[in-house]
Design a protein around this nucleic acid. Structure first.
Lengths: 345, 345
DNA sequence: GAATCGTATGTAAGCGCTTACAACGTCGGA
DNA sequence: TCCGACGTTGTAAGCGCTTACATACGATTC
């Protein structure tokens, strides 16, 4: 039942308004260079015809799209949500449109998505973390698309980035845990492969053990994708492998929420019997019972600053722009001192 | 420091492989219509030059993009996340790329995003809920872009859709609540304006009251954006307005999680002192304490089926395709019988 | 009143790709 | 030996838009 009325083009508008295509184009892009009367006439025709510029054509002719792409590992949990929202808001205020796609933590899919976004004319890209095949960076450079790395910050990388030091932040949390008296530490980490943030957080814990005279090899580590259910399962396995664990440090709040929940259904009181920590400080950290001691990541600030940086890079293609933010401990109630150990070893 | 090596084009590849541009184009799009030897040669050149097709040009010449756009009200919470993930997976398996953007529950922003996605060549669009200015549907029709509505289903709408009956689902939950003996009911609803799902859910509760001989006007309703914090605040206000409320029905799990949390910090035991219900059955519903009685929405199924339907519409532009799914009660622990009332009224 | 300038508009050349159509072997069958 | 058919490749015409450049026409200036 489609009428299939052909989609109006610049030409149609030009005819309707009895001007040249150039004039119509100017009405849209540089309205002040057009006489008021003409402008009005053209605008009326545009509305009458319901004209929308064809983006492909526009990109091709003008070579910029006012579009920024972001590829995040997942939309399934709120880890990137807040930051992305802020990112979009800030971009929007500068006239840019954000297009998002998710790689499901799959490097190949990520490459695909990058190519899709680039060939669709993204003026710039926001990517999470550094860790990816170098050829991707080359490709992006060749295509002349600036990239900004977010959610991570390291001095040793040359990509411009905005984020925080995952390793140091987790280190601080681990030190705090150890200072409280814990020495039997279990870890539920995200999958480290292809995820530098997860890897760094893990290293942060190891660093802390070393600095405290403990042996990182004693760490019980379970690696599992970020998901509440996996957090639950991992807790079971951890307690099975080593029931003497007094604290479980989790790679993020999602895992921690799962672990916390399972600990309770196992009849453990948190933090009296077992302490649990998270990372990220997403919304649920505050509402689980007990509330989660975690590392607060300044999501919104990161998103906003990322947008500002990118806009800057786009304006004056110089701008180095790496920026480190602070992620501080957020002390709540899921972490306490270790329980008094049974004496019969 | 940019080398600014120009981006390779089809032409460059053609020259490098010593064939015409037509042949290169064929190698990419219809490889079987090209002699094996030529194909290999061309492919080598493509790789050597690091060529990626220019999307804009391609769209312009070919008029289809294998891209589907989705505009969701928010990425901040997990309500749409699971469904969208499934949507993307299914689309991907059919060769489509998904581009997402978020409207932040703002109708104007949504229009903007729709135009952005359309002019960027989306072959089809996924939109959440029916409720939007009719001119948008006209525009989409004129632009020849099929739309699918998700997360809602109603027989009275002519847009093809895939979802469930929000009103009936909430009705069932409300009936259950009332059957348990509750009559002093508080409601924390999402913002109803521009959100037919929120509106329908609210109506569902009213229907249930009516059918049970109660007066819907006795309902204490607080309308607030979906956000954990708002759920917390709303609970406070509700208890202040009418402390005799025995159950709080929430428009979704996010609000419910907030309400639950606040109820506990107020010293109320859930569900002995106060019952709380949610809607959606997102991950947190299971891990909050006590776990949330809610309405289970088949997120993944909805996402997958939405993708399948859309792909179908794109193939044979007929396909009506509306599909209703079931959203069933998920009984957990946050809902119980009302406490015995004090006798001194 | 002619020379100069500025503003408003038009002309037309691409941007990089797809695809209808034409051209060119090459092979088999009559 | 010649012809038609087929498989492979080339030619070239757009797709809808932007923009450098050309043009036209008043308004200023001397």
């Amino acid at each position: 039942m489609q009428m299939d009325r052909p989609i109006p083009t610049l030409d149609d508008v030009a005819k309707a308004a009895k001007v040249s295509t150039a004039t119509v184009s100017r009405c849209i892009n540089l309205p002040d260079r057009v006489a008021k009367a003409t402008l009005d006439r053209v605008n009326r025709s545009i509305i009458a015809l319901g004209y929308t510029p064809n983006f492909g054509a526009r990109v091709m002719a003008a070579k910029r799209t006012m579009t920024v792409g972001a590829i995040i590992p997942t939309m399934e949990n709120a880890v990137f949500a807040k930051g992305l929202q802020a990112f979009q808001e800030e971009l929007h205020s500068h006239g840019y449109t954000l297009l998002v796609s998710s790689s499901a933590y799959d490097p190949d899919l990520e490459i695909e998505q990058i190519r899709a976004l680039v060939s669709r004319g993204a003026d710039a890209l926001l990517l999470i973390g550094y860790d990816r095949d170098p050829s991707i960076y080359e490709y992006l450079k060749q295509q002349n698309v600036p990239v900004l790395i977010a959610w991570a910050f390291s001095r040793d990388q040359d990509q411009p980035s905005i984020g925080f030091d995952n390793r140091r932040s987790m280190y601080r949390l681990a030190r705090h845990v150890i200072d409280l008296g814990h020495s039997q530490i279990g870890v539920i980490s995200g999958i480290v492969k292809g995820n530098d943030r997860a890897a760094e957080r893990l290293e942060g814990i190891r660093d802390a053990l070393r600095d405290s005279g403990l042996d990182p090899r004693d760490l019980q580590i379970i690696e599992t994708p970020y998901d509440i259910r996996n957090g639950q399962d991992a807790l079971d396995r951890l307690m099975q492998v080593n029931p003497r664990i007094t604290v479980v440090m989790c790679g993020n709040d999602v895992l921690a929420a799962g672990a916390l929940n399972r600990a309770r259904t196992r009849g453990l009181t948190v933090p009296d019997d077992l302490s649990i920590t998270g990372f990220d400080d997403i919304d649920i950290a505050e509402i689980v019972t007990p509330s989660l001691t975690t590392v607060h990541v300044p999501h919104r600030e990161m998103g906003r600053k990322a947008a500002m940086t990118l806009v800057n890079i786009l304006k004056n293609s110089d701008s180095t722009g790496s920026l480190e933010l602070q992620a501080n401990l957020k002390i709540r109630n899921s972490l306490g001192v270790p329980p008094v150990q049974d004496l019969h070893d």
